[in-house]
């Protein structure tokens, strides 16, 4: 059993790499990622679980990193937008599709949306528009009106369909 008011040192996996971090109990995952691990791709918007900007994957499921205490994530696997990058710094197919379809403008909400869509496309490689819209409902985007980012996700889904036997 662990009890402490001060700091805790815990092991977790971030983007496939084992990491050890020392945190106060109240430290939120979003802050650990941004300030300790310098993974600033995860953005913090509302800090109370409404805007979705800070969404990352925890054991493959989308979660709001502003609502998770890092200390609670012992042994868990966290994936952030940085993990999407392909060798040579290239965009992955979903990111490229966002660029091609104007799926972002200011880009603040984009990392979170990419992570939610990544989780969806792993579970369901060919979601229909309804499923894509369900998946991004927990994200606030004030630039695109959502249409282009939905188009971007659907284009990736179609592309995979053509490749598949």
């Amino acid at each position: 059993m662990t009890t402490s008011t001060t700091t805790h040192t815990i092991d977790l996996t971030v983007n496939g790499i084992p990491r050890q971090v020392t945190v106060e109990p109240r430290t939120l995952l979003a802050d650990t990622l941004r300030t300790q691990l310098r993974l600033t791709g995860t953005h913090l918007g509302c800090e109370h679980g409404v805007c979705g900007a800070c969404t990352v994957l925890v054991d493959g499921e989308p979660a709001r990193s502003c609502l998770l205490f890092t200390v609670s994530l012992v042994g868990r696997s966290v994936e952030t937008v940085e993990s999407l990058e392909e060798p040579g710094g290239r965009l992955n197919p979903l990111q490229q599709s966002f660029q091609d379809h104007h799926g972002l403008q200011c880009g603040f909400c984009t990392p979170g949306i990419l992570m939610s869509l990544t989780a969806l496309l792993r579970d369901e490689p060919h979601p229909d528009e309804g499923r894509v819209r369900d998946q991004v409902q927990g994200h606030i985007c004030r630039c695109t009106g959502y249409q282009q980012l939905v188009d971007a996700a659907l284009a990736v889904s179609d592309e995979d369909a053509e490749v598949a036997p």
Binding site: T3, H8, L28
Partner: peptide, 17 residues
């Protein structure tokens, strides 16, 4: 918008909790 400090307990069994 950061939570206040608290003491953290992570029991490993229901009995401990």
């Amino acid at each position: 918008m950061k939570p206040p400090a608290f003491a953290y307990h992570r029991p490993e069994t229901v009995g401990e909790a």
